Simulated scan of single mutants.
Amino acid sequence: MTDPARSTLPLPDYDHLPLGGLESRVRSLTADEVDALLTYERSHADRRPVTEVLSARLEQLRAGAEPTGGDPTALRPEQHGRTTGSPVSPATSPQPSSAPPHGTPDQRGKPKGDRT
Rank of each mutant, 00 (worst) to 15 (best):
Q107C: 10
G85M: 05
A56M: 07
E66A: 15
A65K: 12
T68R: 15
L54E: 00
R82D: 04
E78I: 03
L61H: 06
A65P: 07
G64P: 05
P101T: 08
S86I: 00
G81T: 00
G64W: 13
T84K: 09
H102S: 13
D71I: 04
P105K: 14
H102A: 13
D71P: 04
E78K: 07
T73D: 11
H80Q: 09
S98T: 09
Q107T: 10
V50I: 12
T92N: 06
P94E: 06
L75S: 06
L58P: 00
P96I: 01
L58K: 01
S93R: 13
E66C: 12
V53T: 13
P96D: 09
S86Y: 02
V88I: 07
L54M: 07
H80M: 08
E78Y: 09
T92F: 04
P77N: 02
G103V: 01
Q60G: 12
T51W: 03
T68Q: 15
T68K: 14
T68H: 09
A56V: 00
Q95Y: 07
G69C: 03
T83Q: 08
P72Y: 05
R108M: 08
G109M: 08
R108H: 06
T104M: 08
A91F: 05
V53I: 12
P101Q: 09
V50D: 01
V50T: 14
H102T: 11
A99S: 11
P96M: 06
A56K: 14
S89F: 06
P67D: 10
Q60K: 12
E59L: 15
V88G: 01
D71Q: 02
Q60F: 01
A65N: 09
T104F: 08
G109L: 12
Q79V: 01
S97D: 05
P87R: 11
P67W: 14
R48S: 10
Q95M: 10
H102Q: 12
A91Y: 05
P67A: 12
P67K: 13
R82I: 02
P67M: 14
S86F: 02
P100T: 09
T104R: 15
G85I: 03
T68W: 07
S89N: 04
E52R: 15
T104K: 09
D71H: 07
